[in-house]
Write a protein that binds this DNA or RNA. Structure first.
Length: 746
DNA sequence: ACCAGAGCCCTTTTT
DNA sequence: GGGCTCTGGT
């Protein structure tokens, strides 16, 4: 594609961004405004106009998916091998750096990467070994503490510890770091921190990369954490141009350390910075964008941005209030049925929710309606136990010092090395300051246990010999047999699925081999000289860094179910945002976090709304079973924040919502109202009869001449004896006889 | 070594 | 309510 062709289909601000001279820029890219297009076209433009060579570009994303997409699109625009380019995730690129500079990083050449599970397992082991009370210091929390510290760029000595508890956690952090160093393993945050440290300590290395990367491009900049930002500052040279692309309104990862403030800091630290706004949206109808704009205006401290489209208003947003979560699910599924009947493709419909637990009801309903669906979230391929076992064998072959891998398979499949033997071995290794493998080889246990250990050692040794000449997929296939994994799962009653997964692992190895052509390029010089990685190591890295999809894609088009977080970056014709209730969305924990928590929830809602192209449904239920308890909820404030002119109620419009009249008092104090409902209702057993008898239901909003507005929370008796309990906003809980109370249903 | 039942957690998540 | 992990019994 010629340089002018590249620009032909861009709008004005997009073109400005793409053709910017050698200066740093902050691109505020609204949802659906074509930011990936700008990023890739920018790179293609720089290359095809000869402003930079492929070696001079560094492009960073957060997910492998985004990195892959960028590479694919770029490859379609310019005739170069994008595989050798430094395009990847923060972690992927740091891994690359450390594989190239393992000596400077003081790592073994074939260091292994710990995923989160393994990190927790390692902490747990250390807690046990040092007799630290696991009730007081849960491994998970310690691992989180360590990861957070690293993401702030802090080693144990640099962490401020003003109390005993924190000091103890820092101690654990230190033990953890030592163990990782001893075993030659690196966790996710360590990839970044270690790279950062190597770059800051080795001036020549830093200057080399500073001079090399003329153009740095960062995607989803609002999601960068402190360490990532500092890393960026370090790797960008004085003469380098940094293009940061992001959307402060779509920052939804503060909970894992993302700092939106990096966007403001960027303007100072990389000054002079060109600021470019991409506000034209190519995705959604006008009403949907207007709703999103109106909602997000309630947030403070925004950089400011207003989405617009030239595609017309489209239809109003559809609102639905259900009595129960079941009713809400029924509404969603009925709407989906008619959409499917109209010919909307199933994979163009998405059900979004705030938390994973909400998927159950929808799954149930979809299953009964025989609508194929796909749920995102849950265990991913490389996180499955059987896959981890197989990979642990592979890791031990590559690096026997890897205690994590050793412990995972030393007695799996069982070979008579019980908990006691392992404990003894661990004590021995700790005493001698060696790895478990070394301790086992030294033969310190003696007796029956040592004989079993010797057998295990022999398995690994013979694997090392056997795998050496084999191509990767054959190596994996051989290992599954020779380790006894397959035999073990064949003997197990429910082992069939696990065997299928192990076969799938062979397929994954095969796919990996074909994708890379057997050569994993770590770096390529301008003259075409390549540094490559060992295939087995590369596959292990691939497994750790690209854990694979949550689920293998189903063959046919399926309805999409996911959390709002998981939906970020995706788009669908029809979107259902469900569970829009105070306490659920916005989540009560976020509400308790104060304004910043609430504003992040609002951005989450903003992300959810902007996923929809054509039709958007917002729904909630008055009554919902959550954590085994019935809760009474009121509509989310986010529904109020959408102008009524953009919406249409498909159910009865709840009192006080989206109405021209002033909001009734009970609605204004919804939080108190909800708290008042936390008592158990006497049950739902009379719900059916109640409804049939008089048209009142549990959860029904009612008006009483004297007590004002309230909600029915329980009922008993029937006919003349029917009594209801009503929680009134201003007068609290009252028990009323239906015959006399003259309640008005709203 | 293995299973069943108790106990525990429960917002969002990529690498 | 449900799914996972740990424990204690056989």
């Amino acid at each position: 594609m010629s340089a002018t062709d590249l620009l032909s289909s861009l709008n004005e601000p997009q073109r400005t961004a793409v053709t910017l001279p050698n200066v740093s820029a902050l691109v505020l890219a609204g949802a659906g405004s074509g930011k990936t297009r700008v990023l890739t076209t920018r790179i293609a433009w720089l290359l095809s106009t000869g402003q930079v060579s492929p070696q001079g570009i560094l492009a960073v994303t957060f997910t492998n998916k985004a990195a892959r997409e960028m590479q694919t699109r770029l490859a379609a625009m310019v005739p170069i091998n994008t595989r050798a380019m430094w395009i990847g995730t923060f972690h992927g690129l740091c891994n690359r750096f450390l594989r190239l500079h393992w000596r400077e990083a003081r790592l073994p050449e074939s260091f292994a990467i710990l995923d989160t599970q393994e990190q927790v397992a390692l902490v747990k082991r250390l807690l046990k070994a040092h007799n630290i009370d696991e009730d007081k210091f849960p491994a998970k929390q310690c691992a989180w503490f360590i990861a957070s510290a690293k993401e702030e760029g802090l080693r144990p000595d640099a962490v401020d510890a003003f109390d005993d508890y924190t000091r103890r956690q820092v101690e654990i952090y230190r033990l953890y770091d030592d163990a990782c160093q001893r075993e030659g393993v690196v966790d996710f945050a360590e990839l970044l921190l270690r790279t950062f440290e190597v770059l800051s300590r080795h001036d020549t290395l830093r200057e080399h990369y500073n001079a090399r990367f003329r153009h740095l491009l960062i995607d989803e900049f609002q999601d960068t954490n402190t360490l990532q930002y500092r890393w960026l500052r370090l790797i960008a040279g004085r003469g380098s141009a940094v293009m940061a692309v992001g959307d402060d309104d779509q920052s939804i990862y503060a909970f894992r350390g993302a700092k939106v403030a990096n966007m403001q800091r960027f303007e100072q630290d990389f000054a002079p910075v060109r600021l470019i706004r991409l506000e034209q949206n190519y995705r959604s109808h006008g009403n949907i964008l207007d709703a999103a704009n109106a909602l997000i205006r309630n947030n403070t401290g925004r950089l400011g941005k207003e989405l617009w489209t030239d595609r017309g208003h489209g239809e109003p947003l559809r609102l639905f209030q259900g009595l129960t979560d079941g009713d809400e699910a029924m509404f969603v599924i009925e709407s989906i049925k008619s959409a499917l009947a109209e010919g909307v493709p199933a994979d163009q419909i998405a059900i979004l929710y705030r938390s994973n637990a909400q998927s159950r009801l929808f799954e149930h309903g979809l299953f009964n309606a025989r609508i194929p669906y796909r749920v995102y979230g849950g265990l991913r391929f490389f996180e499955r136990a059987e896959i981890k076992h197989a990979m642990a064998y592979l890791r031990l072959v590559a690096n026997p010092e890897d205690d994590n891998a050793f412990l995972r398979v030393v007695n799996f499949p069982p070979r008579g090395i019980g908990t006691k033997s392992v404990e003894n071995l661990q004590r021995l290794a700790q005493g001698q300051g060696t790895s478990l493998w070394q301790a086992a080889c030294a033969g310190g246990l003696g007796g029956r246990a040592q004989a079993a250990l010797a057998q295990f050692i022999a398995v690994i040794e013979s694997l090392r010999v056997a795998l050496a000449p084999l191509a990767l997929p054959d190596a994996v296939r051989h290992l599954i047999e020779a380790s006894g994994l397959r035999a073990h799962y064949i003997a197990e009653r429910d082992g069939q699925e696990r065997i299928e997964n192990l076969d799938e692992l062979v397929a994954a190895a095969d796919g990996f081999l074909r994708e890379t052509g057997g050569v994993v390029i770590l770096d390529e010089s301008a003259s075409g000289e390549r540094t490559t990685a060992d295939p087995i190591n590369a596959f292990l890295t691939h497994a750790a860094l690209e854990a694979g999809d949550t689920q293998a894609a189903e063959g046919r088009a399926a309805l999409q179910l996911m959390t709002v977080h998981a939906a970020k970056g995706l788009e669908f014709d029809y979107v259902f945002i469900t569970g829009l209730e105070e306490g659920l969305f916005p989540h009560e924990n976020a509400i308790n976090d104060g304004d910043s928590g609430l504003e992040e929830e609002r951005r989450l809602m903003y992300v959810a709304i902007t996923r929809a192209r054509k039709r958007l449904h917002l729904s909630f239920a008055q009554m919902r079973m959550l954590h085994g308890q019935t809760r009474y909820n009121v509509a989310s404030r986010f529904i109020d924040e959408i102008p009524p002119t953009l919406t249409q109620w498909l159910s009865a419009r709840p009192r006080g919502l989206s109405a021209a009249e002033p909001m009734p008092a009970w609605h204004a104090t919804r939080r108190d109202a909800r708290e008042g409902f936390s008592g158990q209702p006497s049950s739902g057993q009379s719900r059916g009869s109640l409804r049939d008898d008089i048209g009142f239901r549990i959860g029904q909003q009612v008006h009483h001449a004297k007590f004002g507005y309230g909600v029915i929370v329980s009922a008993d008796g029937s006919g003349k004896n029917a009594q209801v309990e009503v929680n009134f906003a201003e007068h609290g809980l009252k028990r009323l006889a239906l015959e006399y109370a003259r309640l008005t249903a709203l």
